[in-house]
Nucleic acid binder design. Structure first.
Lengths: 163, 163
DNA sequence: GGGGGATATTTCGTGTACGAAGTATTACGC
DNA sequence: GCGTAATACTTCGTACACGAAATATCCCCC
């Protein structure tokens, strides 16, 4: 019941597949855990740290831009910004150009906090990646990018698979 | 503090690193999204589908075993089981051997549901992986496993980095 | 064999995370 | 210009997800 549906050659490197899935899950969840711990030192949560680091270089972003950058939905980010505004790290400003848009900007307190945080949220992850040999980095990038593209293709025509 | 520990050559293949991070995030989140959509067809959430698929082959598991398998904390799984019990898919049974332990088992209704679900939660992911050439699968497995091990090492002595 | 520590689970409080529905504003078609 | 669609954001309800504290039970050792 595990035979591959589409590829002709038999894939018996099943341990490889398991290892890949496990490694990806591990890398992702572990990087989130580390980010959370890091953020905690500054009284922040993981997403809140991400928001601050996104805002620091550019000054302000619309809520939608922020949502896109941290890969969350508007309704999620609304809540995150609510809590950050409550703590006085950011403030909302209605855009003059388009009154539907809300700009999120760091307050003075938020800026001080941002500049006191030296580590990027993804540091650990990237540090480890940077240790890869150039060849391995290239290989990994090539294969993962191909995988992602393939997933994207498959997801478009979602497998309508009734029972 | 960013100098690579093991590789001598400077890593300027920064686009590769970006691509890798992005691909991993994409693959992980997309696989969750697909799982969620799949589970939704059966009136389940992603984690609930995972629980049902874990229970199906073995009959019952303690809450802790379940937590370990789906990589969540006990307090999280308690909630998931609460909701699944409310819907009549699983039931709790106090262990006879050790009265601290709670066994989670599929009900008749849960078993019917489980057997009607043909797709594994990770199917899409694995299908794409299975399309890799054997060489690429081996390479990917090798590199990711090394990355994961390295992250594990680094996380142990967490970077005590005051301000 | 009784007390203290370890273990399994639950409860509680907080913070994401999402989709659906609602509100306000802008853009478009004619 | 006016109605309608599109866009930006918020609100609401539900479901994770986690850590800390509480509870129940077991284990060990004196």
């Amino acid at each position: 019941m595990n035979r591959p549906a589409s590829s002709a050659e038999p894939v018996e490197a099943s341990e490889d597949l398991d290892a890949i899935v496990e490694a990806i899950v591990f890398l992702y969840t572990e990087s989130r855990r580390v980010t959370k711990g890091l953020a905690g030192r500054y009284g922040l949560t993981g997403p809140q740290l991400a928001v601050i680091k996104m805002l620091e270089p550019v000054g302000k972003l619309s809520l939608s831009e922020l949502s896109w950058k941290i890969r969350a939905r508007n309704s999620t980010v609304t809540g995150i910004i609510d809590r950050m505004e409550r703590e006085g790290w950011v403030e909302r400003r209605r855009s003059e150009d388009d009154r539907r848009v809300v700009h999120i900007a760091l307050t003075a307190r938020g800026k001080r906090l941002a500049s006191s945080i030296t580590i990027e949220p993804v540091t650990l992850f990237r540090r480890v990646l940077a240790e890869l040999s150039e060849r391995d980095a290239r290989e990994l990038s090539r294969i993962l990018t191909r995988l992602a593209r393939r997933v994207r293709e498959l997801v478009v025509d979602l497998p309508e698979e009734g029972t």
